[in-house]
Design a protein around this nucleic acid. Sequence first.
RNA 1: GGGGUCGUGGUGUAGCGGUUAACAUGCCAGCCUGUCACGCUGGAGACCGCGGGUUCGAUUCCCGUCGACCCCGCCA
Length: 430
Amino acid sequence: MIQVTAQTLGGHIGQEVTLDGWVHRVRAMGNFAFLLVRDGRGVVQTVLEDPRLVEGLNLESAVRVTGRVVGEPRSSSGAELRVTSIEALSPALEPPPFDLNKKALEVKLDAILDHRSLSLRHPKERAVFRIEGELVECFRSYLRGQGFTEIFTSKIVAAGTEGGANLFPIEYMGTRAYLAQSPQFYKQMMIGVFGRVFEVGHVYRAEPHYTSRHINEYLSLDLEMGFIESEEDVMRMEMGFLATLMGRLEETCAEEIALLGARIPAPQAELPQITLAEAKEVLRQRFGKELSEEDDLDPESERLLCQHSAEKLGSEFLFVTRYPISVRPMYAMPDRERPGATKSFDLLFRGMEVTTGGQRIHEHAMLVASIKNRGLDPEDFAFYLEPFKHGMPPHGGLAIGAERLTSKLLDLENIRQAALFPRDIKRLTP
RNA sequence: GGGGUCGUGGUGUAGCGGUUAACAUGCCAGCCUGUCACGCUGGAGACCGCGGGUUCGAUUCCCGUCGACCCCGCCA
């Protein structure tokens, strides 16, 4: 017997096939019925000449249906499966808590997350994660093509990379450890080994915030590259990745993108960039918003700048560069030409910061001085500092928040919708 | 840590100082041979989050509490 899926059914007209999936909807028409079977990626309309075949089968029951595929102009898909038998592999014990077969899942976020394993069955909910999976896959394949090596660093660490305030402490063999807030130190250390590395992994932030763009565990797409001329090399790498991603998503996720009604930006070889100082000037002149020199951008400014970029600079992306030393971590490379500034950047997209990156300090003495300037003790960073005594090339890197990029790409209202099982200030289950 | 909004059948909403608490969807029963958000008829399902107060009377007003969501600081 031929096994088909929602994707492949149309190629088997005239054949006897089986299809595995879940009872998505039943439309009983009297002497016959339409049974919609949802499988891992699509939904197939099947026809039952005897509607009693589904009697007593709740929605969401796992079934194996057998029948013949026929071309059928009356069906909007052009083909349908005429079912001769239905095997209930695992009947649903009760109806689902909300309607999974409507066009949109009209349920409050709270209920969606409380019943995550069920809400994800909705075609639109799960589409988000097929796209997110493609995004990660593209990140990997693009960087491999650029000579990067994938690394897997420990998420259990002895100290944080940028201060200790927002770390999750854990009990570790009688001593205190922390969940990693970033693979920063390790990816830099691996520059001395591979030259170019990347990592896809969860990172942890214990910040007690509750907003639509924060979760306490998020997927960080990190890269770090050695032998660079400046942070511009890192920005170019990100532009290359993003252009490739946009083209690829349109190819591999067309169905999901259409289902979600998402607007994927057209691939652009170059993305606009402005310095932080220029950005503040735009905010002042165009939007009447005053920010002091030390201020970082607040969320409203990020939204306004993206509006500006879309309207005047021809892109929904915008690099903001040359952040001051005061708002960047100790490893950020100072800009020799502009005292007080660093060779760093953020990437804004549709109103949100989706990336932070920059060139790093690679000279041992300068790094030690920077650590001391922050009131930190270089002794505490001995393991990190070691490779810097042994030929650490000029290097830089960045981190992309996968859920943030995904949620903005798909116009999701809340970042939690781009996390399978989000961890936030209140939610530890499911 | 600070500020705001909201808690009404399974789900999503409406309403309001006195109501048989409404609508949609789901569920149950019946009808329907081409639906694709199928349709039609009937039915069940809510002590209006919890506690206290004001009032002749509170789901409605006030206070507290718990919960949810949003914004800010910070960040991806």
